[in-house]
Design a protein around this nucleic acid. Structure first.
Lengths: 246, 246
DNA sequence: GTATGTGAAGGTGTTCACAGCC
DNA sequence: GGCTGTGAACACCTTCACATAC
């Protein structure tokens, strides 16, 4: 370590003579007593997955625009809103070294790498439960716009709907869920049913082998640890916006 | 300060003789050089709005279940997933002292307080741009399920739709947006148009006086600071789930 | 020169531990 | 006894500053 290398304040470790703390990695933390909830299980550690999606989208845009090489600054500018080039470099460095110093990042290489990390290089089969207005709209949207996602099963409790087909998929009665779903190999379930039955539907989907749920009912689903849940609550989203307005 | 009050490690301030740091509040930070982006502007400071919505929903559930008083632990259990009672108490303490020590929180008082903070005690008028499958589903959902939100204007570019009415609202041509919208007093705009035109629609909504946007197009909208934007990107949500599965 | 990659510093949000009160 | 409210401790994530590489 050469002299004149640390013009900022002295490091905390130097000041108090303690060894750097990062090594321990929360080894012996006392287990929380007041809650049975398992301790998150998800280790996001510095790099955040949602941010990687932003990068991926930005890079895809750049690719469409014809860029072959992109610097972290250019990517940050493309993404906009508060993304710093440093943050991008830091995140990407956790996936390995893909850039060339002095040049930037090869767009195709990086898109491919991110795609693999994010699981975008595979196709996914989806089951929709609840094929009313919302379920129908979601299905249409995905079927038309997203090549990676295929609607492989549809369930509803409305006798008027059950039996008809939609884009080649037969709409089945909700009671058949456990019987039919396992052999269809759907990893993802979309819950577009009223709030009152959402929890029950979630449990049944999980029992049928679905490992991830996208929930549009305004309830906090509780499912086994190991099952991923994302809830999109339109009312909450709107309320967030109103909060900003007042 | 009595003796025997600090069994944990000595405070950083004590160890290195520095005064507590929290006072300064990032006063003279050098302005970022490499980006023109304005410095977030949003101060969330410890308490997070989305979390308050969780509390609000949990309390409403409790109210429906007949609870009059709730402890922070009970609320945490009701919300589930990684909410700690400490976190709840800390957040609520920023809004004032509403609990009774030894007892808990009065549910009705707290619901009302949170509702006021979150802007849930008012009605809101919404404009929907793009009335295809998704726009239609969103409109129906809100009209039927959410009393606080009223669809007050609908725009589409499809001549087949323009002119017809839906729940008493006439569907207008998108070109009329600037002419019609200002006098309808819509604070919120929902963007349910294809990604390719979303940015343009956003700009026009903002010019027509809309202060908050809920965007379903998979693009990062860039709008004036001061306009709130929430983007719900179904593809990204699904991709997040797939990441969990692989 | 330019841009990446990365330890260390710096802030921010969460958790702890306990005083205060019922 | 129980539960709230809160300063301080802590862990996490972001930003800085600079060595390294092109």
């Amino acid at each position: 370590m050469s002299p004149a290398r640390r013009p900022r304040a002295k490091s905390r470790a130097q000041r108090n003579g303690k060894a750097p703390r990062k090594g321990a990695l929360k080894a012996a933390r006392p287990i929380a007593r007041e809650q049975i909830t398992e301790r998150t299980a998800e280790r996001s550690l510095v790099i955040s997955i949602p941010r990687l999606f932003l990068y991926h989208r930005g890079l895809e845009d750049a690719l469409r625009a014809g860029d072959k090489v992109l610097t972290s600054q250019e990517l940050a500018a493309r993404i906009g809103r508060g993304m710093s080039s440093t943050q991008i470099r830091k995140d990407l460095s956790y996936l390995g070294s893909f850039g060339r110093r002095g040049q930037g990042y090869d767009v195709t290489v990086l898109v491919k790498k991110l795609g693999r990390v994010l699981g975008l290089d595979r196709d996914w089969r989806i089951a929709i439960v609840g094929f009313g207005n919302l379920g129908h709209a979601l299905g249409t949207f995905l079927e038309l716009r997203e090549e990676k996602f295929h609607i492989a099963a549809i369930f509803d409790s409305d006798p008027q709907l059950v039996g008809s087909t939609w884009h080649g998929v037969t709409i089945r009665d909700e009671t058949e869920l456990e019987a039919v779903l396992p052999e269809l190999g759907c990893g993802i379930g979309i819950i577009a049913v009223p709030a009152s039955v959402a929890q029950r539907v979630a449990e049944r989907l999980v029992r049928a082998g679905v490992g991830a749920l996208l929930n549009f009912a305004p309830v906090n689903l509780s499912v086994d640890a190991g099952v991923a849940v994302r809830t999109i609550d339109l009312a909450s989203e709107l309320s967030l916006l109103t909060h900003h307005l007042s």
